[in-house]
Design a protein around this nucleic acid. Structure first.
Lengths: 105, 105
DNA sequence: GACAAGGTACGACTACTGACGTACCTTCCA
DNA sequence: TGGAAGGTACGTCAGTAGTCGTACCTTGTC
């Protein structure tokens, strides 16, 4: 079957509440921080080292995607993820950068 | 009785997680936005117009205080609140500003 | 074909959140 | 001496978040 398109919110549908809620979780914040370190890089979801089970990871991917923080690409049996940096910077300038740098103490 | 001191986290105890969690709520974000508009002003808690009950408001004050977003001063039968702007800016530069301006669409 | 790897779906469980009402406390003011 | 106003404490309740295990699907590889 063709790689099904995963549902992503449009740029104008991004909301601060869900984004902050998504970023409030340490595991997800770690993912975003790693993605933000190389904003143009598309990363394999499996390459993130989270201390949770496989099904919990799926849950976190979904939260990040539905909040509009990442764009996911289904490549058959693999999932790739990329930070929606442009969209986020346009709608919420400085937010991602502030959160990521806040986490570096 | 002397105005009891309310428990506030120290500057170095501020954590990103609880702060983002506190800001994920729309009511609390509104309070922070209003405080941020006049950072040096101390405001009466009762002056905020939140569409929730009295006891719910107390709950939100506590969340904001325990996250370290505001400093509260107990003046007998009244409670004053002030944004901990300096502390927040020192620990998480740009974060509050980004969140507040993000809410203005 | 068989199997491993990466993901999803579903249900379950625990813990927490936001909301509320009621009762109570403290202070100010008529 | 009373209110009335502003807050807190406590218990409750419904909804949601994070976690997990199990079963299953898809793809690549042996």
């Amino acid at each position: 079957m063709a790689p099904s398109e995963l549902p992503h919110p449009g740029v104008d549908d991004l909301e601060v509440g869900p984004i902050l809620l998504a970023l409030a979780d340490e595991n997800r914040r770690r993912v975003i921080a790693e993605l933000a370190a190389r904003p143009d890089e598309e990363r394999l979801c499996a390459s993130f080292d989270l201390p949770v089970s496989k099904s919990s990871r799926t849950h976190h991917w979904r939260v990040l995607r539905e909040a509009g923080l990442v764009r996911q690409r289904d490549a058959g049996n693999r999932l790739y993820m990329r930070l929606r940096k442009k969209d986020l910077d346009r709608r919420f300038p400085g937010l991602i950068e502030a959160v990521v740098s806040a986490d570096r103490h």
